[in-house]
Amino acid sequence: MSITYLEAIREAQAHLLREDERVFIYGQDVSGKFGGAFKATKGLAAEFPGRVLNTPISEDAMVGTAIGAAMEGMRPIVEMQFADFSSVALNQILNNAGTQYWRTNIPCPITVRLPSGGTKGSGPFHSQSMEAIYSHYPGLVVVAPATVEDAYTMLIDAVAIDDPVIYCEHKYLYYHLKADALPKDRLPIGKARIVRPGRDLSIVTYSAMVHEALAVAKQFSADGIEIEVVDLRSVKPLDTDTVLASVARTGRLLCVGESFPWGGATAEIVARVATEGFHLLDAAPARINAKDTPIPYHPNLWSEHRPNAKSIAAKARQVLAE
């Protein structure tokens, strides 16, 4: 048997619907035989009648409704058709979900699934990674699984969390990643994972960029340079301890993110390592992100816009040369 990242997301939702009667799925085109723009809910409406609900194209109201239901004791999963459209629901996510517990002491356990990140030909409005915006605001957990196993266990864990969770699933990984089976073990949300040990440079990243970083590490290993790759898994909370421990081993840091360069997860990691682990560094910490333009449509432009194994390798060489 083999299971893709996308199938793992579907299986996690099937598991949740089966095990927890408070769970329902709320989103555009998720119901019926159709099962979602990416088929992440395929077959679930038939298996769980009345619990996989199509919504109007009203991202703000979808999340608002989920918030009300969560406050009433349910565990809604909202599927955004693309992460990009969650901008329409920013107000509900940031100002309503994110403030609810702090203001009223009432937990707001919604999970918002964001099909994120770039794929060829998707252009400016179907390619965004929005973890930085959501992480900036208080009251939210923001996760970005990079593997089939994490896609499965982290979605199940996300729904169990009493706070709002933004679950950034990467569209490029949907079909590209396969595992032999669903995982038996899980690493809890909030813990980063060392996916490849090394001694010369730490590349700290998350989501699809983990795989680019692994490709670079493999390539460098042939020349005797050992890169350690840290998969953050959750952007907020950020597992600073694991990052610092890695930098303590390697003395060098390169942060890689697929989203825009101003601020964001990579800047946050650099800031934390600089303030909390300055003495661990043998070279200036570096970061590489997408370019500061909207995400281009054409594959030739798109592949240059985001970091890729080539640009990461070039940056890694710079950090190693220092």
């Binding site: 009203s58 409704t65 239901a69 969560a70 406050m71 100002n95």
Partner: peptide, 22 residues
């Protein structure tokens, strides 16, 4: 209420939807 006008309408809808589900 949050300040943002109109934002509470779907929250009420969600409360009602959940009550019905329960």
């Amino acid at each position: 209420m949050i300040s943002h006008l109109g934002a509470m309408i779907p929250v009420v809808v969600g409360k009602l939807l959940a009550k019905r589900m329960k």
